[in-house]
């Protein structure tokens, strides 16, 4: 039973994605999208505002708490904080859950469970590598991104924050990652898609919010006749919706 999550980081009372919905964030880069994603991932503390997940406020917003609340996060710069480069694929896939059963039992790590999960996820997410023990930095960008997506989606999140999920990877991998986001939506979970690729936002999102100078200035239900030109006017701050328009 999903009651929806509301992510309202940079400014008060702004809409987040609902369950079974992909909310796309459009905007010129540098208008607060990175910060929004990092706040939701627990990597940055909001100065004001609150985060509601399934209607419940989250107080101590560090990464562990956000993950426990059901937020998963595909970071925008995978090499910066998305992977441990000289650690194995299997270990990268367990990064948010290593301390829980079955991966840790009675205080002891279970390499068998960790490898078993890795084999399963590598097959499921079509990760091509020498094996579960191959170090992360032996993978291509696309396969590295698939490892991240596999980890974050297999966390079974209520809200998936996908920041630039297809940046710098090949077409095949991009398609695969996009399909994963759609599947996640179809399973009834909420997805927040942040992308500099406007076409990607427009093709995947159910609703589109436009960010400008750290604030959401417009929200649209995605419809076929919505044009890049129209979004662009909001992205550049030429036009702004009123609060009532956004709520509509």
């Amino acid at each position: 039973m999903c009651l929806g999550s509301r992510a309202t980081a940079p400014d008060r009372g702004q809409p987040g994605p609902l369950c079974g919905e992909i909310l796309g964030i459009a905007g010129v880069e540098g208008n607060g999208q990175t910060e929004l994603a990092e706040i939701l991932g627990g990597l940055r503390q909001p100065a004001t505002g609150e985060i509601l997940i399934r209607g419940a406020p989250i107080t101590d917003k560090d990464a562990r708490v956000m993950r426990q609340a059901g937020v998963a996060h595909i970071p925008e710069d995978r090499l910066l904080n998305g992977v441990a480069p000289d650690v194995s694929i299997a270990d990268n896939l367990v990064a948010d859950r290593y301390a829980r059963p079955p991966y840790t039992r009675h205080g002891m790590l279970s390499p068998g469970a960790i490898r078993e999960q890795a084999q399963r996820l590598m097959a499921q997410f079509d990760i091509r590598a020498a094996g579960v023990d191959a170090p992360m930095n032996s993978l291509s960008g696309g396969n590295m991104q698939k490892v991240i997506v596999a980890r974050e989606i297999s966390a079974d999140p209520v809200l998936l924050v996908a920041a630039q999920p297809t940046r710098g990877i090949d077409i095949g991998a991009s398609e695969f990652v996009r399909q994963q986001l759609v599947d996640q939506r179809n399973h009834g979970e909420a997805v927040l898609l942040i992308s500099a690729d406007l076409a990607e936002v427009m093709s995947l999102s159910d609703r589109i919010a436009v960010m400008h100078k750290g604030k959401i200035v417009a929200v649209f239900a995605n419809r076929p006749d919505l044009t890049e030109h129209e979004l662009g006017l909001y992205m550049l701050g030429v036009k702004t919706q009123s609060v009532e328009e956004m709520a509509a």
């Binding site: 970071p75 910066l80 441990a84 290593y98 790590l109």
Partner: peptide
């Protein structure tokens, strides 16, 4: 190093501190 969650944390921290923080390691 090899059989405890703590050892895992050491390894991940040593590989990429920002990743460890992102994954929720203290």
């Amino acid at each position: 190093m090899n059989r405890t969650p703590y050892g895992y944390e050491l390894k991940v921290l040593g590989s990429n501190r920002r990743f460890a923080e992102y994954a929720g390691v203290n």
